[in-house]
């Protein structure tokens, strides 16, 4: 059974520390809700786990079944069984969605899939996420609505069938029906043993996928690692109780002040 072990992970972006010693273990078959206020490092953690070039790891290790993935390139991590469903999937002009999907599937298989096999896989997966088949033949996420982009992420999740999937606000931009479709797919894959680490700001998704654990990220660390009921508590009461019960001061999201505050003559400065 695959297990991902994160030990004392520290990472920064452009010299600014974001992750300050994350410790977390996720096993295949678990569904872990990742909660926390804005700006405390949730998305950073998922991007660092997948090897985004913007983030620099300064300390710690991440082991997937004993192998340190931090020494691997992003594509190697994918082939090892990790997947990141992105918050804002890129629009890549000119790259046809189905060409990309086929190339991705082939990277995960020993033998390239035949045209017929690929068509069947794609046909089944698009039906499962109720995505019009023609979206698969268009440019990758090009001109897709927010909801279509998220369905395309879930389509890729189905086709690549990872060991552990990280989902970053996969529910944002989805209407009620689409959310149910996404939740159904997650539940099906859960039942097949896939592991999940899921960021969401809304209890609705968690109500549908029923996490096995909930962890809360505060100030770049995992401050709470508890049962799934924590997700409901945060939905109802916010994060204040963490300060009163655990004595952790929750840092406010830092935003640099604008260097100028008025329009016209300062426009050039303010759009920098």
């Amino acid at each position: 059974m695959s297990t991902l072990v994160i030990k004392d992970l520290c990472a920064e972006v452009e010299g600014k520390p974001i992750l300050k010693g994350v410790n977390l273990t996720i096993s295949k078959g678990e569904t872990v809700a990742l909660l926390g206020p804005n700006g405390h490092g949730k998305s950073t953690l998922l991007n660092v786990l997948m090897g985004h070039p913007k983030y620099k790891v300064t300390k710690g290790e991440v082991l997937l079944d004993g192998k340190n993935i931090l020494e691997m390139s992003t594509d190697e991590r994918s082939k090892l069984g990790l997947f990141l469903g992105m918050q804002n999937p890129s629009e890549v002009p000119g790259v046809i969605n189905s060409d990309f999907l086929r190339a991705a599937i082939n990277e995960h298989n020993d033998k390239p899939v035949s045209t017929y096999q690929f068509y069947k896989l794609l046909d089944n997966a698009t039906k499962e996420v109720k995505m019009p088949f023609d979206l698969a033949t268009r440019g990758l996420n090009e001109g897709f609505s927010g909801g279509e982009k998220k369905r395309n992420e879930i389509l890729q999740l189905i086709l690549l069938n990872p060991e552990i999937a990280f989902l970053d606000e996969i529910d944002s931009g989805l209407d009620v029906d689409a959310l149910q479709i996404v939740a159904d797919v997650i539940n099906k894959l859960k039942a097949q043993g896939m592991g999940f680490l899921v960021i969401s700001h809304y209890a609705r998704l968690y109500d549908l996928i029923k996490p096995t654990r909930a962890v809360v990220m505060i100030n770049g660390r995992i401050a709470v690692d508890a049962g799934p009921e924590v997700a409901n508590r945060i939905d109802k009461h916010g994060y204040e109780w963490i300060k009163t019960e655990l004595g952790i001061e929750v840092a406010k999201e830092e935003k640099d002040m604008n260097t100028v505050s008025i329009g016209s003559c300062a426009v050039k400065e303010s759009i920098k």
Partner: peptide, 9 residues
């Protein structure tokens, strides 16, 4: 990053 996160070198 997007393409590589799906396994493409």
């Amino acid at each position: 990053f997007y393409l590589m996160s799906r396994g493409l070198s």
